[in-house]
Design a protein around this nucleic acid. Structure first.
Lengths: 230, 230
DNA sequence: TCAAAAGTGTTCCTCTTACACCCATGT
DNA sequence: ACATGGGTGTAAGAGGAACACTTTTGA
């Protein structure tokens, strides 16, 4: 059976999402240094080493190619169509990652990447391989999941205003949200700590109170069978 | 990079669920003919060939090992912990399959399997490798998904009574369902065709009307943004 | 004092839940 | 006639959606 599949290799790819108030949701892409698809944009990723787990492989590749460290990582889907890579049979396990304060992360290009850049998910370049398909699946997943799991907080700073949270949800869900209803629902979940701190005013307007996501509390509630849902 | 991961192989595993009125939900397992885990029960599956897609690999292995053909197949998750197989690094992509009328499928053992058998998911044997973990994930997925996608019908005969459907849902969700509310909700979705046919009576009791799942109608409604939810 | 953004309550309506009796058949 | 399972309606409560004014600050 070694013979039957000697040519199959395994890679991991990462779809890293970030969020900025005035930018919306962006994804991290690298420009390929080598053929195939030289100079095209692609998802960061690479071969899995023999003694590392899949998650370790994703983190290592992200570190090598972009210098980024993520705190939320979730397996998305595996892609294995026979001709998805023109060189050889490659099966890729895609991971979805979320990072805080996207645009302030220091990006470094390296190894297989000649540059690294954030792209707004509504304004993507042409992508190498089947990465468009993978990215679409990732966007779907985030949009669906943000409604029933508190992953939105992984995209915001530790401290955030209610307006920030609301804008993030509007950006992800692609529709307007009623401020009052949203606040009611979110506060009703009792997973936000209200801080004794106000946002620094930018221009006019009443300063907003800052909040923090209470993960411990969320896990408690989850165990009691109380559902997060927006 | 060929060197780095020359030892990694790719397999697919299938979690095949079936349902019988008096049995509940069962999963299809095979008894391993060879070491490691000789004579232990395991999920059917095997190596992916170089020129077949992952789905094709699952279908082929199921055919070879159990003689079964499935009509619903969905990728579940990929398992790749470095030591999940004692022989070598193996990454396995698990697929969830549903079949109709579980106990009437003719099972044949073959290739790597000395026997094939259905096991009720509440009464499982010890499993080889990390297959217990995989199976748990599959059960989770089915239980969650049955609530927001009409996959339950894949486990029933084409024609079924409302009582059958209700029992299936109770079995999957693990709790009682109010007959009247359930019927109201399900009928409200307008995805069931009421047939001019009654179940053959078994013993006493009023015969039940038969229904059929209207997949076309479901897909229409889905496109109109109408959600299935139980 | 005006413009800009934050904060707050109430009403209506829909959907969910709880609940009990009649109907058709076999024995 | 009775036992067994199938089929149906209603009322109360909870949760979601729609909606507008007041407060605090900077300019």
């Amino acid at each position: 059976m070694g013979k039957k599949q000697s040519g199959i290799s395994v890679t991991v790819d990462a779809i890293v999402f970030g969020y900025e108030k005035n930018e919306g949701v962006s994804v991290l892409l690298i420009k390929r240094k080598y053929d195939p698809f030289k100079d095209n944009w692609a998802l960061p990723g690479g071969f899995v080493l023999e003694d590392e787990s899949l998650e370790e492989a994703v983190k290592r590749e992200l570190q090598e190619e972009t210098g980024i460290k993520v705190n939320y990582l979730e397996q998305l889907y595996s892609f294995g169509a026979p001709n998805r890579d023109p060189r050889q049979r490659i099966i890729s396990i895609a991971y979805l990652a979320l990072v805080k304060t996207a645009l302030f992360v220091e990006l470094k290009a390296d190894t297989d990447a000649s540059s690294v850049q954030w792209f707004n998910i509504d304004n993507l370049p042409r992508l190498a391989f089947d990465h468009k398909l993978i990215l679409e699946k990732a966007v779907q997943r985030v949009r669906a999941k943000v409604r029933y799991e508190p992953i939105g907080f992984e995209l915001l700073d530790k401290k955030f205003s209610f307006a920030d949270l609301e804008k993030l949800y509007m950006s992800l869900l692609g529709r307007d949200i009623d401020r009052r209803n949203f606040r009611k629902k979110m506060m009703g979940l009792e997973i936000l700590d209200e801080l004794d701190e106000w946002a620094k005013p930018e221009g006019a307007g009443r300063p907003s109170k800052m909040f923090r996501f209470n993960k411990t509390r969320y896990e408690q509630l989850q165990q009691e069978g109380i559902l997060f849902e927006i």
